[in-house]
Design a protein around this nucleic acid. Structure first.
Length: 119
DNA sequence: ACGCTGACTATTA
DNA sequence: CTAATAGCCAGCG
């Protein structure tokens, strides 16, 4: 029996409006509890995306209008911040009680919030 | 159509 | 720990 790695495919349920994955990602990110974090990969997995880069792309598309999206709670699989040269997200995270060592989250494993398991 | 780029990830050295 | 590589896929010129 082959345990082939089925490549995850973005499922587009027919009948569902073309909400675009970006909106779904934003909604999911808004559900991340304060003081917890998750990863691009975890979000991608839950939404059935094959490429976590798409999640990052969605974050870069936050325009500031509508509900705010706590993108600071989304980090890389190694618990590090990405594209935070101005340390903007770094500051927000510490404000939520998350300790950081440089751009690395302390106790990332404990603070990790899995959208597919705890939600 | 084609090549490059990118808020990623896993593996290997 | 860092660096290099490969896989991944949508968007853009």
């Amino acid at each position: 029996m082959a345990k082939s790695k089925e490549r995850l495919i973005a499922v587009k349920p027919s009948g569902v409006k073309d909400e675009s994955v970006t909106h779904l990602i934003h909604d999911l990110v808004r559900q991340i509890p304060r003081g917890r974090v998750t990863t691009y990969g975890a979000i991608a997995k839950v939404l059935g995306l094959a490429n976590p880069r798409m999640v990052g792309k969605a974050m870069s598309q936050i325009d500031g209008k509508g509900k705010p999206v706590p993108a600071q709670r989304v980090v890389t699989s190694s618990g590090r911040l990405s594209h935070d040269t101005s340390h903007h997200r770094h500051t927000l995270l510490e404000k939520e009680g998350i300790l950081l060592n440089g751009d690395k989250i302390v106790d990332f494993k404990k603070l990790f919030w899995d959208p597919g398991r705890e939600l």
